[in-house]
Design a protein around this nucleic acid. Structure first.
Length: 587
RNA sequence: CUGCCCGUAGCUCAAUUGGAUAGAGCACCGGCCUUCUAAGCCGGGGGUUGCAGGUUCGAUCCCUGCCGGGCAGGCCA
């Protein structure tokens, strides 16, 4: 007989089903935990589901099922209720058994069986062109928790960051850095308004000078500006002026490449490594780690981009128009066809992304999860289309969209543009509200919901942040166990039957649902469910803590209650771990 | 104009994937510290789930049409 009451009930119902409706055995028996206490510990709508195919009254069917249900000592009561639900009330020993299970399994309680499923989770993947901002922070917190959650649920998980080290944005960063560097030597032109403005670029310019002195400074202002169209007046916002600024920037980049020659790679690499290292440190402090940093440039270096496009071409999914190569994504449900290779011969970002996904599939993952900002939603059909066109299974690819986090300061939105230099960085946010509160706050709502991050509130009311509520429950258990001073192993022998009041049984039921929570949250890609579970568990613990004493005279009762407290502590710690939040011993 | 996402208590959000009387936290009101941590507990008010239809035993959830908000619609990434 299984220790899990859910498995037991499922078996019993199946037996009853065999005699009541022998031809309906394929039906999945749904067992849920009712919201209302007077509906028992578990409920099933099996009779309601059977009503239609059997064309019979659901309440009658429920009564029949009950009559055929094999007896069990672990069921105290089973009754028909409402429209035809069957409600089960478990015997006390069936409810409290979970405490022993938690104590014996420890940190493994709730861990799913190994499923032999390889999952790749790619997240953050921000351009390494500046500090991570609060929007990236949300993707980082979500992706990290999702990864840990999937792993805990029994999947084999790889965490990956896609480094966009090959595109124009990186060239702009390299140019921006170089211009700041040159300014250190008095070689100064008007800094382009569409280059990277942030102070970190000025700092990189200085660092580059400190590391290499005047090695990259043998140019004149005239050489820099040669052949550039010049900048329109700052007040002009029209499209033509914008175009001119972009052309000016591209001309400057071209000049930089020509003037620096092979040295350009040094400057480019310097800026890339500075920003990548900064992001890695930032995320590391945030408790977010990756198994692999995947370079976009490597896709070109290994010829995979070419191979991917060639394969599409061979299978007739590519045509040439206006000198460019187009992927016929409309054949796969996209709104319009997309360019993969420009008329100037350069591949688009989309082309390297196709190659990247081909690579992901070739590495043999069973499931591939891309965590993207919600502004990329229009991008999904073309990527899935490309995957299908390559003969790969689009169903293996899932895209989790994370809505932006909008930061409020003094009741007003703050800009998060990297270009403007006015963004609030993830690092600043972490410093202000702390890593724990940050991680918890980020996953406290569904990922597809907008997140209003009120900085003033987070600062001024940080003591009321829900994360402390959960951590406090953990610290309280630690404190009680310390005062008791006994060996935790002793608690395995506790007489759990002594846990019999309403609050204690409610806590047991909550603990018992932890494994289901893990499976559901993992299947839904919804780490926020863990945060809500922890809040509920903490609330029930605090309530119990205030109503009953644990360190009582009666030795047996004391051990039983401490065993329950210890089990709560374990599950709180396991849940917090999944969210990347610390479980403090004292507060 | 077209496509995707979202509309739930004054505010920020949940709701066991279609279940029974829609729940928490802030905020507001009233109680509880000589006893294991008051970053806590107990009690109270607060809702036509944007609007109108449809599907069925049953809808916050699924379908259609409106209303309102966000985001996309580059040979940018």
């Amino acid at each position: 007989m299984s220790a899990d009451p859910k498995v037991l009930l499922n078996d019993l119902l199946k037996t009853a089903l065999k005699s009541v409706a022998p031809d309906q055995l394929e039906i999945t028996i749904l067992l849920e935990r009712p919201k209302q206490a007077n509906h028992g510990d578990f409920a099933t709508n099996l009779a309601l589901q059977l009503a239609k195919p059997l064309k019979r009254n659901p309440r009658e069917l429920a009564a029949l099922l009950l009559a055929e249900l094999p007896p069990s000592k672990l069921i105290e009561k089973a009754e028909v209720a409402g429209a035809g639900f069957i409600n089960f009330t478990l015997a006390a020993e069936a409810k409290t058994a979970v405490v022993g299970e938690v104590l014996s399994k420890g940190a493994d309680f709730g861990r799913g069986d190994r499923k032999n499923i390889k999952v790749l989770v790619e997240f953050v993947s921000a351009n390494p062109t500046g500090p991570l901002h609060v929007g990236h922070g949300r993707g980082a917190a979500y992706g990290a928790s999702l990864s840990d959650l999937l792993a805990f649920a029994g999947h084999e998980v790889s965490r990956e960051y896609y480094v966009n080290d090959a595109g124009r944005q990186m060239d702009i960063l390299a140019l921006s850095t170089w211009l700041r560097y040159l300014a250190c030597f008095g070689i100064e032109i008007t800094f382009p308004p569409n280059a990277y403005q942030g102070d970190y670029v000025t700092e990189m310019g200085r660092d580059l000078r400190d590391a290499h002195q005047d090695r990259f400074a043998r140019v004149t202002v005239e050489q820099l500006l040669a052949g550039t169209p010049g900048l329109p007046p700052a007040e002009r916002k029209d499209d033509e002026a914008k175009d001119m600024r972009e052309q000016h920037l591209d001309a400057l980049i071209a000049n930089a490449k020509r003037l620096l020659g092979d040295e350009y790679g040094w400057v480019h690499g310097f800026a890339l490594n500075e920003q990548l290292g900064d992001g890695r440190d930032d995320l590391g402090e945030f408790g977010v780690r990756f198994d692999k940093w995947f370079s976009e440039q490597s896709l070109f270096d290994t010829g995979l981009v070419e191979r991917a496009v060639a394969q599409l071409e061979r299978q007739g999914h590519i045509y040439v128009q206006d000198g460019a190569k187009w992927f016929r994504s409309t054949a796969f449900g996209d709104e319009k066809d997309r360019v993969v290779q420009r008329d100037n011969g350069l591949y688009t970002y989309f082309a390297s992304d196709i190659a990247y996904h081909l690579n992901k599939y070739e590495r043999g993952f069973d499931r591939i999860i891309d965590v993207w900002g919600a502004d990329h939603h229009g991008y999904i059909p073309r990527v899935k289309g490309a995957v299908a066109a390559l003969g790969l299974a689009p169903s293996k690819l899932e895209v989790a969209l994370v809505q932006f986090a909008v930061l409020y300061r003094n009741g007003q939105k703050t800009s998060m543009s990297t270009r403007s230099g006015e963004f609030v960085t993830l690092r600043e946010l972490r410093k202000e509200v702390g890593n724990d509160a940050c991680r918890f706050f980020y996953v406290l709502r569904k990922s597809d919901q907008h997140l209003d991050f009120d900085l003033d509130l987070a600062k001024s009311q940080s003591n009321e942040n829900p994360v402390y509520y959960v951590q406090y429950a953990h610290a309280r258990v630690c404190s009680v166990l310390n005062q008791w001073g006994g060996e935790v192993a002793e608690l395995l022998a506790a007489e759990l039957a002594l846990l019999n009041n309403e609050r204690e049984l409610a806590l047991c039921a909550r603990l018992g649902s932890f494994p289901e929570l893990i499976q559901n949250a993992a299947a839904d890609h919804a780490p926020h469910q863990i945060a809500f579970y922890l809040k509920d568990l903490a609330a029930e613990f605090h309530s119990w803590y205030n109503a009953e004493r644990m360190l009582v005279e009666d030795e047996a009762l004391k051990l039983a209650r401490l065993a329950l407290a210890r089990a709560v502590q374990q599950v709180l710690a396991s849940g917090l771990e999944l969210l990347g939040v610390s479980a403090p011993q004292s507060m």
